[in-house]
Design a protein around this nucleic acid. Structure first.
Lengths: 149, 149
DNA sequence: CACCAATGCATTGCATGCAATTTAATTGAG
DNA sequence: CTCAATTAAATTGCATGCAATGCATTGGTG
């Protein structure tokens, strides 16, 4: 690849990931609209359906998001009646996020979603598997909770 | 994969793409800060370095962004002196985006960036190649400029 | 025990993304 | 030519993301 090709848009993995991420979100939108939630709220619920009663910090580690994003988002989920935000009496710095009844029940409605999306991607099981593995490897490699020189 | 596993965060390609995209942006940030631009401004410049003098519409098709995102972003790039926004005299609905001298010269500074980032990803050439191909396939499959039933 | 650094969350400010609407220019049917 | 439909940008409103900062609680030290 010559000097000029290096900077071409279609040669950038970063751009492919960036564009894919937004296009995937658009695929989800109509379904999530019906459920009354946004994409970020959806992945937050995915995390909670898997492990309820997390602190904001733990949720942030799981989702790679910080309190600046999560606090307002969780307040909206609380206003929508899907989660509760409870300050931990044993350590009042922690706020624990717990699913409400409606929050738990929404899982049922979401269970068909991944299948519908995957079929829309037109990827074979193998392709999807391989892509997923590559992304996870990349994620592991670049995510540095604390930077060292 | 049973019914419960289907909704696990780590089984969602969508989440892997979403998280990867944001982590990659963070990798770029320190370098782009030095250049005085943001990540979205960077990919916009990538597109323009490859093909100068595009309309907003064409730029949007290239970047999968709409005028709602591009108009303010291009105004910032114009304020920074990197591009010009010129209404096409032949069809005044079109606004053409052209690189200025400084905008062209910034390409030099950017040319080392992809290499530095790729090395930070820790992926082999093969892995990167395969990942990129998978993402492009996915992008082609899901991007529908106009929806059909 | 008093104090201070560390921790967890909230807030602020800025830059996206994108749907929906508006505005201005152009095109095309009659 | 005339006016309605189409098209390209711009604008508006809402929801992220994230760095930087603020604030309250807690833990460790002397």
């Amino acid at each position: 690849m010559n000097r000029d090709d290096i900077l071409k848009l279609d040669n950038q993995i970063c751009f492919a990931v960036y564009a894919c991420s937004r296009e995937i979100t658009k695929l989800y939108r109509p379904y999530l609209d019906e459920m009354g939630i946004t994409y970020t709220q959806y992945v937050t619920l995915l995390a909670l359906w898997e492990e309820d009663d997390m602190t904001v910090k733990r949720l942030g580690e799981r989702l790679y998001l910080d309190s600046g994003t999560l606090t307002p988002l969780l307040k909206k989920l609380e206003a929508a009646g899907l989660v509760e935000r409870i300050r931990d009496p044993r350590d009042e710095r922690n706020v624990r996020i717990r699913l409400t009844g409606p929050g738990v029940r929404l899982k049922e409605q979401a269970s068909g979603l991944p299948g519908r999306i995957v079929s829309r991607t037109g990827l074979s099981g193998e392709q999807a598997q391989s892509l997923h593995a590559g992304l996870n490897a990349l994620l592991r490699n670049i995510h540095q909770p604390t930077r060292e020189e």
